[in-house]
């Protein structure tokens, strides 16, 4: 995995892919102060390990002061974007009644049936099939009239990266935090401790109130357009559903793919505040 931080930063930072954290070795107090100053602005929760040991002897070259000052930023961008293309192979079953159609068309249809609007564990939410890269000749199985075809295809996957800024709508406010929904995805949660400092839940309004200063009350109300930063993604392994009607009563199942978000820096929160 390549990290696409600043080239300057790259030399000084040890990148641990996931969960994103930064470990900085430095014996320079000034440098450490600098890091502390900028740390609230980092896109990912960063861990700074300040070592008063002789960093010069460390494998990490000690930056000169001027270099350290240039380095006003330490960031890890885990390179994902809201929508990505993923390359997947699978064996598709083409039922006999679609034999009349062109092969590629029926393969795409079958793949869309299987993948569209589904979450692949550790990958993300598949939106649709983008294109087919390879379509093998079909195989036959005894006792089945269908053909089985090996395909390599690319699909559009929705997977925002940790640190990405998204806009959505507030679906629900509870004392625990705010639930945000997008039209096609609603497992986004902003826990109370990831909200602005000085945010309070108001039980009368069923909303969160942010008081940047004594006389200003900014409401985070249901159906407001909200901007937030993705902090963490949680994948859960879900058992396949049983026959219909068997496990209907299970309402509060863990979502297979959920996002934790935050609202703490400038520009976050209701979109209307910042315009």
């Amino acid at each position: 995995m390549t990290s696409s931080g600043l080239s300057l930063a790259k030399r000084l930072v040890l990148v641990i892919p996931e969960p994103a954290s930064v470990i900085v070795h430095s014996n320079d107090i000034q440098y450490y102060d600098l890091l502390q100053r900028i740390s609230p602005n980092l896109s990912t929760p960063a861990t700074f390990v300040h070592r008063a040991c002789a960093a010069r002897k460390n494998i990490f070259a000690m930056p000169s002061i001027s270099l350290a000052l240039d380095l006003a930023v330490l960031l890890i961008l885990i390179p994902h974007a809201m929508f990505i293309l993923s390359n997947v192979t699978d064996l598709v079953r083409i039922p006999p009644h679609t034999f009349g159609r062109p092969v590629k068309e029926s393969v795409t249809t079958e793949l869309n049936k299987k993948y569209a609007n589904k979450i692949i564990n550790n990958l993300g939410l598949v939106v649709t099939i983008w294109d087919l890269l390879e379509v093998d000749d079909g195989l036959l199985k005894p006792g089945d009239g269908a053909t089985f075809i090996n395909v390599r295809f690319r699909c559009v996957v929705w997977k925002p990266f940790v640190g990405e800024v998204l806009t959505g709508w507030i679906a629900n406010c509870t004392p625990e935090g705010i639930k945000v929904k997008l039209e096609f995805y609603d497992e986004i949660f902003i826990p109370a401790n990831y909200l602005f400092e000085g945010c309070e839940y108001s039980p009368e309004d069923l909303a969160w109130v942010w008081r940047p200063d004594a006389d200003t009350n900014l409401y985070l109300d249901v159906n407001e357009k909200i901007r937030f930063r993705v902090e963490e993604e949680i994948f859960a392994n879900i058992k396949p559903k049983g026959p219909a009607g068997l496990d209907e009563e299970e309402k509060n199942v863990t979502p297979p793919y959920a996002l934790l978000a935050s609202c703490q820096t400038d520009g976050m929160g209701c979109v209307s505040w910042w315009e």
């Binding site: 929508f83 990505i84 699978d90 649709t128 559009v156």
Partner: peptide, 24 residues
């Protein structure tokens, strides 16, 4: 199912929008 490459490319919102419109 095998994931060969989880992230081959980035797609901009516009590309996705255009493609979905076509499907629609």
């Amino acid at each position: 199912m095998k994931i060969e490459n989880p992230r081959e490319k980035f797609l901009s919102n516009y590309e996705v929008y255009d493609y979905l419109k076509e499907i629609l």
